[in-house]
Design a protein around this nucleic acid. Sequence first.
DNA 1: CGATTGACAATTGTCGACAATACTGGGAGG
DNA 2: CCTCCCAGTATTGTCGACAATTGTCAATCG
Lengths: 224, 224
Amino acid sequence: MTSAALRKIERKPVEVQAIEALREAIVDGTIPAGERITEINLSSAMNLSRATLRSALHQLAQEGLVTLVPYTGWRVLKLGPQDVRELYTLRAALERLAAQLSAGRLDDAMRASLEAAMDALSEACAAGSADEIAEADFALHKAIVEAAGHGRLRSQYRLIEQQIRMYIRSSDALLAGGAEIRAQHVPIVEAILSGDPELAGRLSEEHNLSEGRKLSDHVAAAAG
Amino acid sequence: MTSAALRKIERKPVEVQAIEALREAIVDGTIPAGERITEINLSSAMNLSRATLRSALHQLAQEGLVTLVPYTGWRVLKLGPQDVRELYTLRAALERLAAQLSAGRLDDAMRASLEAAMDALSEACAAGSADEIAEADFALHKAIVEAAGHGRLRSQYRLIEQQIRMYIRSSDALLAGGAEIRAQHVPIVEAILSGDPELAGRLSEEHNLSEGRKLSDHVAAAAG
DNA sequence: CGATTGACAATTGTCGACAATACTGGGAGG
DNA sequence: CCTCCCAGTATTGTCGACAATTGTCAATCG
């Protein structure tokens, strides 16, 4: 072993690379919402075969990012008010379970990761851009889900994660200031770290529901 | 229109037929849990091409029924105690949301469907086989999810639905008698129909958690 | 002038073949 | 007798081509 720090080379199947590239493009708006896309165009543009791309599109379809209309083409998800409602209610239900479970099985490693995520959010709230705050916010929520140690919960959360990012991005402005955002999350993390599942779950759910409702109203107002 | 009642012919793509056939085979044990399967065997056995079957397997992989180990083969899900815990906690969280939403948006059609499902369960509990009771039980739960009018919730529930069927089947005996099962569900349905989201959600969650825990203990005891 | 029918173009649905990769068993070397 | 290397085999990963289906647009008929 001559070199201590060699850059790891990516060794993923082309298919998962395609999935990730497409997901990113859709979430960050490179491919506009509501756009109609065809397999043959994308496959040539991404330099891979139709069969591979098709498989990737099917996976994204199960994540809800694209829909297939038979023999006519694919269409990327366009979020409406109903979608936003669905997303934040579902997110609240899943994160409530995550917070309950995390509080119920405390562990040095997860304690450390939660504290790190909370610190990062505090720092971002104090002196970060809106994008950085949103990212740290999201990272904390995700850390809670990871700490639950629940594989299926993690999978299901991942399914709606990308769509949540889309609507956070679509309502480009944060609705609350940095200090307020930090104040909203501190009690949740404290409840988890103190090992109180009941309280942690309730706080987490309330936070998601109230923030989701705000965002939903904001989107509805902007749309109509 | 000359004929009033023509039989509708099934017109599904081969791929979705393959998905349904495989799902059924796995859930009902035709393909044993833990079995290793290869694309080429299955494709020839089911009389379709590898690419089509492969796509179907990928979809089932996202449902968690099979897992892919690269360049070696596929393996069908084998449920352990940890899996059962994950399933019933997740199920409880999702059905809690479903009960809350259903109670919050009452509607003649859904009221009728819920009552019908409850009646069917009552009937099965009174004079049905264990299989019939289990089926009616499951149908009622699913009716509540449908009544929530929440597309993403429905999708996510469908993802764990099949696995839940697997573990219900694996612990072949019902743990409670017909009368008891009926008594457990009546208050939940009543809470929904009376339009009390808070109560409906709480009852639904408690029911799922307590029954899930029982089943989990039963499975753990049976396993070792 | 409107409606219907037919052909055409675009797109997905399905397939078989070739390439890349991981597991397995045997043989050479120590 | 044990260990390591190497080739063979089984299996997934990727690809390009052909078939089936749908929507469109123009020509034709009433």
